[in-house]
Amino acid sequence: MTMYISATFKELTRKRVFLVTLILTFIFLVLFAFGVRAISGIGEQSQFSPERLLNNMVMMMLGLFFAQFLSAFFVLFSTMGTVTGEQENGLLLAVAARPISRWRLYLAKWFGHAVWIVAYSAILFVTVVWTVHSLAGLPILLGDLLRGLGLFVWMPLLFLSLTMLGSVYLPMLGNGICSALLYGLALFSGLVEGITVYEGSHPALDKFFLLTGLLLPTDSVYRRSVYEVVGGADWAGLMTADMGPFSIASVPSNVFLLYTVGYAALLLLLGCRAFSRKDL
């Protein structure tokens, strides 16, 4: 099961996927740090003034929002051709003829990608949070940080499970477009939900949010992750309003998080089943 960890690492590094991603990520983080430093100095308020706290939270929200974006695109571009892409270019033929069950091969591929996606997302998350914490003085507790981190890396793993399932059925480009659209829909749904804080909710919109959340719960997991990292109920009250589309209108419950676990398991199960039955 572990054979794909080093194989995926070699692929990411030697095809320079990692290199390009890390360079662009570094540029983003440097620009983000400049932004945080500039915002935190405005007005010279006390470190614990509500205005400064809100500014810092906005910066962290923005940082994590773009971080999840990067993380999702890393998943998308590195895995959208996992099955059909490799089938089309002939890589899978010699591999699948080896004495290994298809479901094990599928899980090994998932695991190989998951390790590096988790590593990348974790670095991204910790760097963003540490930047806001150290430059702007936003108080963060270790327990909150770890809960937020766990949920933040769970989000791309969910997306990975969906993209890999799509790659069993759809050609590489089609899967990329389809997965990106689904991810975009979930993101859009989250942003619209943030705006409804001002305008009040509507039953039709509520159903739309629920359905998109069930279809691809990445944005819900991301929102819970942000909620946790800013101290859960202690500080999150600040975030429920005044942040426009980035406001957290509703925080996904623990039951919903359990649903995401079941959802990912189901996606993996369907992927294993479909890959086992696929003619290569």
Binding site: A7, K10, E11, R14, K15, N89, G90, L91, L93, A94, A97, P99
Partner: peptide, 14 residues
Amino acid sequence: LGYLPELFRYQDWL
């Protein structure tokens, strides 16, 4: 079983 497919490719980066 050893198998050589007709239209195949191995990992370019290895």
